[in-house]
Amino acid sequence: MLLDRITASDVLIQLKTDNWEDAIRKSSQTLLEKGSIESRYIDAMIKVVHENGPYIVISKHIALAHARTECGALHTDITFATLDPAIHFNAGALDPVKLIITLSATDADTHLDLLGELSDILMDEEKSEALFNAGSAEEFVQILHSN
């Protein structure tokens, strides 16, 4: 599963929400509707943050919401949601979060290439800025594929 397989239906743009829990809930609806996760997976993603702190905020303005496989991941899949307004995750200097990537993985390795490609894009400040500000899902996907 590589980045070029991501389509506009995997992307939510300018999601309206007012706290981080709700942000994770809303942004993971796509995975739920696609049948890639069970609903308890969403609770698990929120629970790990309560237990361990905001370690899912992986870089400035970006959160990688995920939980363990056994918490209800059905297929390896990934979806994206940009937030407007940006939401605080109590992640200090990395706040506020503008993009939530929701990952479900059924094993530890099949999605590694995808994450590798993704990190190349996210480390490029210009591109990640463009992702945060994308006006439509199509535009967002186009930036993802521009690599």
């Binding site: 790990v48 370690y55 995920h66 496989t69 990952l103 999605h111």
Partner: peptide, 8 residues
């Protein structure tokens, strides 16, 4: 925590 997202 899960060993497959952020750590990967």
């Amino acid at each position: 925590d899960a060993g497959l997202g952020s750590s990967a």
